[in-house]
C-alpha cells in the first residue's frame, strides 16, 4: 500500500501519482498522512482507488472525483468533493461550506455537520449528512439526493429543480419554490438504499420528511417558453 506523508512529501507529487496509475495495477490502496489542512488533496482521481486520508483537509478535497473511494479521518474545508462525477467520498468529521457543490454523481457522506450551501447546484450526486446542514443548502439543485439526519438551516432548496431532499430533523425555513412533499413507497425505497449505501444504521425512513420543487418559478411555466 503506497503511503504519502504530506509532512515531508509534496502535494503535487501525491496528486500526480494518483493521476498516473499504471494500467493493470492491483495495489489500489493509498494512505495519506499529515494532510494538516492542505488544499486539493486527492483531487481529480479517475481510477477505482481506495484512498485513506489520516487527518483534516482544506479546500476542495476529492474534487472532480471519478471512481475513487476517498475517506477522510478528520474534517474537510470548503468545497469537498466539488463536481464529483462518481465514486465515494466519506468525511468522518465536519465539512465546511458548499460540500458536494455541482456534483454530477457518486456519493458524498459527511458523518458530522456540513456548513452552508451543502449540495449547491447539485446535478446528480447523492449526499448524506449525519449531522446538520447550514443555510441555502441544495440551492438550484438539479438532480440527485440530499439526505440529512439532523436539522437544516435557512432557505433549504431555494429555486430547486429536480433534486430530492430528505430531512429527519427540523428545517429552519424553506427557500423559494421548495415545499414539503408526500413520502410515497418509492421514496422510502430510495431513502433506504441511500442510507444503506452510506453505512447509516439505526434510523427509519419513516422519520424523514421529503422536500422538493413546487415547480412554480418562471422557468417551469410553459407560457414563458416562447421568450426564446
Amino acid at each position: 500500500m503506497p503511503t504519502f506523508d504530506l509532512a515531508t512529501q509534496d502535494l503535487r507529487d501525491l496528486n500526480k501519482a494518483l493521476h498516473t496509475i499504471p494500467a493493470g495495477t492491483n495495489d489500489l490502496d493509498y494512505e495519506i498522512l499529515n494532510p494538516r489542512g492542505s488544499h486539493a488533496v486527492a483531487v481529480g482521481c479517475s481510477d477505482p482507488l481506495n484512498i485513506s486520508v489520516k487527518g483534516p483537509v482544506g479546500y476542495y478535497c476529492g474534487g472532480m472525483n471519478a471512481e475513487a473511494t476517498i475517506t477522510v479521518k478528520g474534517s474537510a474545508g470548503p468545497g469537498v468533493a466539488e463536481n464529483m462525477m462518481s465514486g465515494m467520498v466519506v468525511i468522518e468529521g465536519d465539512a465546511s461550506q458548499y460540500a458536494g457543490a455541482t456534483g454530477r454523481g457518486g456519493m458524498l457522506v459527511i458523518r458530522g455537520n456540513a456548513a452552508s450551501r451543502c449540495g449547491i447546484s447539485m446535478k446528480g450526486i447523492d449526499i448524506v449528512v449525519e449531522g446538520n446542514i447550514g443555510h441555502m443548502s441544495a440551492f438550484m439543485g438539479q438532480s440527485g439526493h440530499l439526505v440529512v439526519l439532523g436539522d437544516a438551516g435557512e432557505a433549504l432548496g431555494d429555486s430547486l429543480y429536480e433534486a430530492k431532499l430528505f430531512v429527519r430533523g427540523t428545517v429552519k425555513s424553506l427557500g423559494a419554490d421548495c415545499i414539503e412533499k408526500e413520502m410515497r413507497p418509492e421514496h422510502h425505497e430510495t431513502l433506504a438504499r441511500l442510507l444503506e449505501k452510506a453505512g447509516v444504521t439505526g434510523v427509519e425512513t419513516s422519520e424523514f420528511k421529503r422536500y422538493g420543487s413546487a415547480r412554480t418559478l418562471y422557468n417551469f411555466n410553459i407560457d414563458n417558453a416562447d421568450a426564446y
Binding site: R36, G37, P56, G58, Y59
Partner: peptide, 8 residues
C-alpha cells in the same frame, strides 16, 4: 483561523 491550516 481563516483556514484550519493556520491552527495545526
Amino acid at each position: 483561523g481563516s483556514e484550519f491550516r493556520a491552527l495545526v
